[in-house]
Design a protein around this nucleic acid. Structure first.
Lengths: 123, 123
DNA sequence: TCAAACTTTCACATCAGTGTGAAGGCAAGC
DNA sequence: GCTTGCCTTCACACTGATGTGAAAGTTTGA
């Protein structure tokens, strides 16, 4: 599909889709006329990128972990490409993500607890 | 304590502590000479702010939810200050935080699954 | 008293993510 | 053919979070 349709289906402006490509997060083919050609899977890929960006990850981090997050895991399982360094990097990134999860969970719980307490007081 | 010590104890540059004050996240007293005076509790407060920023929340959102996240919950439980609008805002923010948590958890799991799969292949 | 280390405010710079618009090529319908 | 709408690249600008440095006042200790 072309960039306009991908934009419509994901709700992400075309400007951003081009930016993600520039940041090496998307790699659309090009038609003869130069138009970008996205596969169906790009819809999910874009949603994934958005979710990660909204969660505070930078495009640089996303670029590094994205190849291992694809739904079509199988094709990425070539162990050759996983050097010890890369494994360490992934471990570290997973740990940092876990930190975020814990911090956010804590604060979400605190908000809920506050709301519940006020409601209880009011009866 | 003064800004230098707070910086040292939290690992957050003084520049950032002043910025957080400008953003209404911190409210230190002032000594006679104009120096900022932070209470002991500021250490935890700063760590909380950092965690939330690192998780992708903006200072604006943090400013709005911070009053309800303090460890000294009791003093914030005055139901008078919780208008229906504010309650809705907090609910919405908690929901958005939950979205982040889910996205990050998913991707953390995917990284771990990838690493486990490669390790299994290698024996 | 003097120097070093701290503080203050102010300002300019950077980086990532995003908005917006110009100037032009391509495509589909009237 | 012409218009309309999508596409291309390029570029300038903004915002939020941060780095950095200048100029000046304060505190502390030799």
């Amino acid at each position: 599909m072309r960039i306009g349709q991908l934009s419509e289906r994901t709700g992400v402006p075309t400007r951003m889709l081009r930016y993600y490509e520039e940041q090496d997060l998307l790699h659309p083919e090009r038609a003869d006329n130069g138009y970008r050609q996205y596969p169906e899977s790009a819809v999910y890929r874009v949603q994934q990128i958005r979710g990660l960006l909204d969660s505070g990850l930078t495009t640089e981090i996303i670029r590094r972990i994205l190849p291992f997050l694809d739904r079509t895991d199988a094709i990425h399982l070539d162990p050759q490409c996983l050097t010890p360094e890369l494994a360490g990097l992934l471990e570290a990134e997973a740990a940092r993500i876990q930190q975020r999860v814990e911090c956010l969970s804590r604060n979400r719980d605190a908000i809920h607890a506050y709301l519940a307490a006020v409601r209880a007081l009011r009866g």
